[in-house]
Amino acid sequence: MPRYFTEEHEWIDVDGGVGIVGITDYAQGQLGDITYVELPGVGDSVTKGESCAVVDSVKAASDIYSPVSGRVTETNAALEDQPELVNSEPDTGGWLYRVELSDAGELDSLMHKGAYDKFVAGL
């Protein structure tokens, strides 16, 4: 299953028109201790590049931008009681939402892991 990355440090795993979205290890490290995650509603439409979730850390609230456009089909219920999963398992258990892609072509503008790692190394 290919994983794509944005310059805003979200990742998306895509499998047959459905994606799972999270934030990268680099992003969680920058945000620090996460105390609350405001997720989109199931059934909500999200738009590539637009804010669709908010991650609250001890210090500040940060917008999460959707890597693709589409419809939200599921959100990570575990984050309600354990928002710190985004810190401890950003690549797996700390995922944010599942989305039905409306335009798979949008993935072409995202980065693969090699390019993202280079992008982060240059920050």
């Binding site: 105390t35 609350y36 405001e38 500040a60 609230a61």
Partner: peptide, 14 residues
Amino acid sequence: RRVGLALEGRMAAR
């Protein structure tokens, strides 16, 4: 007056 507020839930007020 300056007061303290305790919030319900987990979303912080800024």
